[in-house]
Amino acid sequence: MDGLILTFFTLLKILAVVVPLILCVAYLTLMERKVIGYMHVRIGPNRVGFKGLGQPFADVFKLLLKEVIVPTNASRFLFLTAPILSLAPAFAAWAVIPFAEGWQVADVNAGLLYVLAMTSLGVYGVIIAGWASNSKYAFLGAMRSAAQIVAYEIAMGFALIGVLMMAGSLNLGDIVRAQSGGIFNWYFFPLLPLAIVYFISGVAETNRAPFDVAEGESEIVAGFHVDYSGMAFALFFLAEYANMILIAALAAIMFLGGWLSPIDGFGDGVHWFLIKTASLLFIFIWLRATFPRYRYDQIMRLGWKVFIPVTIVWIAVVAFAIYFEVGPWFSTVRSGGI
């Protein structure tokens, strides 16, 4: 009986995370169109509902009512599994995200590792989609995107190693608690190179502009999801935006102190987490409106020859600083028991 109640409450918690997340994704698309619109000196969508606020729902219903077409000679099962494969990890990673003190679905010890494992699964959706649609353009897009994601995942993982060295824990809640004590204790300052590498790798990992060669409309039409239509396409869209929000939330947790207020003990809470995440999402959109697309070889060079060496050097710096007990990297309030 206890087990049943526990399961029921866990399901409720999952719903409490997933439903707002889907709404956030819906309104993020609207925000993106509006923000880019204003940056281009246009108005953006303003027809559906009050000032265009109904636009996301109009888009969703349009996609829901469209036919899902499976191309000839496509591997039918994998073709239809691919969108789910890319969406499921994007949602599953939210299980360990702490929204505020104690507000998380599962308080996992190896939370950071879990998030990395889940985000690394997202690439399957892309590869399988490209392969199963039996189209050259889709396949090229899948290959580009897979190589890019594998390259930037390494830089991203290395950037997080610095965080867990300073926090002394893999638990995301503990990482935030280790940053308590005002804005100057956030990891953004002592780990500045890693924070920048992490965020840019996050942009590349989610295949967003200026790293969106996987889509590359001008060369390969739309990349891995050329042949998808209707709801199957919408799921890819949903996964991309859920991943964007996830990367922003993780950056907020690991470098900007999560739910902590900039002034020590002054109104900590979920609102700070949301403000930080939203600001980072704005930067995502800002980047898209500002920069032209990178060339493919430039992306690979940036990932392998610039970011990975930078992170390795900074990990060594952090390691020496902790070993010789130099502040601000070494801190006595570290939560881990090492």
């Binding site: 590792l113 990395l116 690394s120 699964l121 690439v123 290959m143």
Partner: peptide
């Protein structure tokens, strides 16, 4: 064995098999 389990997913599923799939497809 949460560490080992998650590392299995991270290393084998997330990295090794992706490269493997890559080669098989190419």
């Amino acid at each position: 064995a949460e560490f080992l389990a998650i590392t299995l997913v991270l290393v084998y599923v997330g990295a090794v098999m992706v490269l493997f799939l890559f080669v098989v497809m190419m």
